[in-house]
Nucleic acid binder design. Structure first.
Length: 112
DNA sequence: AAGGTGACTAACA
DNA sequence: ATGTTAGCCACCT
């Protein structure tokens, strides 16, 4: 099934406020650890009114790697900080304290 | 229909 | 240590 996007959205939606997940985590949960780019692509296609907490998804190094002009990294950083997430300002990008806020994704049932 | 493009990652040089 | 390269695979031209 091509519900890849939908799965991504559902998975991201399970992340509670105050926590973050990485693209790789989601990709791995969808059984393709290296398909993390697809996760980013999926989030990129989200519209403004989307219920999906896209801002809780960051790179494996805890950096905000967003490249969407409509929603600059600074805005994502603000959204995260509004949830109590510790966001540090780096030279290039913002950095989230993974050890502190990384969320453990719900375990996926094994395939039939 | 076929090929290019990524809001990524991990492995190499 | 930083810079490149290859793999991923659904979506867009």
């Amino acid at each position: 099934m091509n519900n890849f996007y939908r799965k991504v959205y559902e998975l991201v939606s399970t992340v509670p406020p105050g926590h973050v997940v990485t693209y790789g985590q989601i990709a791995a949960a969808l059984s393709s650890p290296r398909a993390s780019r697809m996760v980013g692509t999926a989030l990129r296609s989200l519209r403004e009114g989307s219920p999906v907490p896209w801002h809780r998804v960051i790179s494996s190094k805890g950096r905000i790697s967003i490249q969407n002009m409509d929603h600059p990294a600074e805005e994502q950083a603000n959204l995260l900080m509004a949830e109590g997430i510790v966001v540090r300002r780096e030279q290039d990008a913002f950095c989230v304290d993974l050890a502190r806020h990384l969320w453990h994704l719900p375990i996926q049932e094994d395939k039939n």
